[in-house]
Amino acid sequence: MIEARELTKRYGHKAAVSGLDFRVEPGRVTGFLGPNGAGKSTTMRMILGLDLPSSGSVTVNGRRYQGMVWPLYEIGALLDARAVHPGRSAYNHLHSLAAANGIPRSRVDVVLEQVGLTAVARKRVGGFSLGMSQRLGIAGALLGDPGILLFDEPVNGLDPDGILWIRTLMRSLAAEGRTVLVSSHLMSEMALTADHLLVIGEGRLLADMSLDELIARDATDRVEVRAVDHHRLAGELRTLGGEVTLEPDGTLLVVGVDSATIGELAAAQGHVLHQLRDVTSSLEEAYFRLTEDSVVYRAPVPA
């Protein structure tokens, strides 16, 4: 488990991260969502003891990272996949990381196999594609078979196969009961991978809730109607108490009247409908609502 309390990082007068309070729980994929520059990477680096918090604290399994003697058994991380000396082989890179934590050498072969790099294990990392580098970074995170995994923008630069592979990997790691924190600015990816979301904007926590809760929250279900006589239909819907907006192409967006009622009304009034469709909110819309007013929304902390 990862726990942040009042976590703050300032560079000069500018706060990159301010007053973050959150817990990352085991057994689920927690998505760390926010626009570029929101403070996701800074937070991850503080979790890993690379950057020192200006105030507040963050702990891994209840301890500060700097106090952990063999950290790779507890937590593995993929930060910047390109941060490997280009002249070194994939095997030597992983071997040096394993040795630093007394992890048996046999694990190097295991993780290379797991990410599918066995064939190129002795090749120079400098010749790797971005996708192969990402796999190498993930192999490094898995070395100690840790209970906590951190992935910073893992799907950047991956092809569709690679994205699917990472998504499946993260879900299975969480299913094994591990804690998985994955940062991304790609909403569509998060909607498919994460169970729980931490949303930050300008260094502040905007939401800490499950994916479904976030989407449902303040969601306004709308009905999209296309009718031949849309002006007349709009007037009739308004008298029913609906809130109607007319799109430039003639489509009506209706809030407050459900699709069944609209269908009955149309039949009764003799309207010709070309389309009648329920529109549900997406994570993307929920996200924009959230960041628009930059108010801190929080789910009640479960007892």
Binding site: R45, L48, G49, L50, Y65, Q66, G67, M68, V69, P71, L72, A77, L79, D80, R82, A83, V84, H85, P86, L97, A100, N101, G140
Partner: peptide
Amino acid sequence: TTEYGTGEIRGTFVATPQ
């Protein structure tokens, strides 16, 4: 300097925070 240049130093410090 090669470790700083490539960014590898972060991996080193993650493995050994000491």
